[in-house]
């Protein structure tokens, strides 16, 4: 397959209009396996990519006091049926800058694909970094997704991340995000995942609230059907006065699904306040009966409810 064909395949799998990237004001990088197929950057933003035998090193730095108007797109694809893709990400968002990044990860034909991400992210004082990760997988479950990130959130800085599987089966997924939050910093991490077949979902979202008045909200919403399993270990450690945090975990199980939630709240300052909420259960009966009373059968109705929850 030519690079161009692969690129078209990749964009169409994620439903991305390739002409978006004709706009020189939109920064983007498109990578299939370990090859850069396209890229563009905008003033203030440096992106360096180095190809590795089984992936890439990607360093992204945004200067201080820069606001990037349009979301930056990163497309990571493995179009072949098998392969390993290792992404080493090093991100620095300069003081008081603002950027939003849309990462599309696409393995539409995967039978045996491993996607490993190792990220070091620094969001400097007063900066804002929003990171949306959208996945498209094959229907076989042959994907192994292992993203790991360590994030430093500076004073008054904000880090927001949202993980969503848009299409296909999860396969095996183990997300491990650790954040360290300085004074008045804010972290919001959300994961929305729906598993079926024999999918296995593991989430570790952790926030260390190290600075006074730092805040974190960790949200996970997971649905498991058939024989899928999910384990959510979300954790907030509050170490400073007036730190505030909330861990929210909702899991819906159907069929023989298994869901385990272990929210951990560790508070070491008398002026801090952290709460948690975990709910695991089948689809709510009244919601189900309401949709059924409009003529949907039970399966359709529970799908609508789950899709709503995960939207």
């Amino acid at each position: 397959m030519s690079d161009d064909t692969v690129k078209q395949e990749l964009y169409s799998s994620i439903g991305q209009d390739p002409h978006t990237f004709d706009n020189p004001e939109i920064a983007h990088v498109t990578i299939n396996e370990n090859k850069v197929l396209a890229s563009n950057t905008v003033p203030g933003l440096t992106v360096d990519v180095r190809e590795l035998p089984d992936g890439i090193d990607l360093r992204m730095e945004l200067e201080e006091n820069r606001v990037i108007q349009y979301p930056v797109h990163m497309c990571f694809g493995v179009i072949p049926r098998t392969g390993v893709q290792r992404i080493n990400l090093d991100v620095v968002i300069g003081k008081n800058s603002k950027i939003s990044l849309m990462a599309h990860c696409s393995f539409p034909f995967a039978v045996d694909v491993k996607h490993i991400m190792d990220a070091k992210i620094k969001v400097m004082d007063g900066a804002e970094y929003s990171y949306f990760e959208r996945h498209v997988h094959s229907e076989t479950g042959g994907v192994n997704v292992l993203p790991k990130a360590v994030v430093d959130v500076g004073r008054g800085a904000r880090f927001r991340t949202e993980f969503q599987l848009l299409k296909g089966r999860v396969g095996i997924m183990d997300i491990d995000y650790e954040t360290h939050v300085a004074e008045e910093g804010l972290v919001e991490m959300t994961a929305l995942v729906s598993g079926s077949g024999d999918d296995h979902i593991v989430l570790h979202e952790t926030a260390f609230l190290e600075g006074a008045s730092s805040r974190a909200v960790l949200t996970s919403k997971v649905a498991v059907r058939n024989n899928a399993r999910s384990e959510v270990f979300n954790k907030i450690v509050a170490l400073a006065p007036y730190a505030r945090g909330h861990v929210d975990c909702k899991e819906i199980i159907k069929d023989n699904g298994v869901a385990v939630a272990t929210p951990i709240v560790d508070v070491r300052d008398a002026h801090a306040h952290v709460t948690h909420e975990a709910a695991i259960g089948s689809v709510d009966k009244k919601q189900l009966e309401t949709l059924m009373s409009r003529g949907m059968d039970e399966d359709e109705a529970s799908e609508v409810i789950i899709q709503g929850l995960l939207s």
Partner: peptide
Amino acid sequence: DERARLGITLAWQEPARFEGLKVRDFIAAG
């Protein structure tokens, strides 16, 4: 659902509240 497909329905005294489900998708359901 069989009764509903025959044409019987009920608007609940206290309607269910969903999480995340959009008004559009709720009203389109029936």
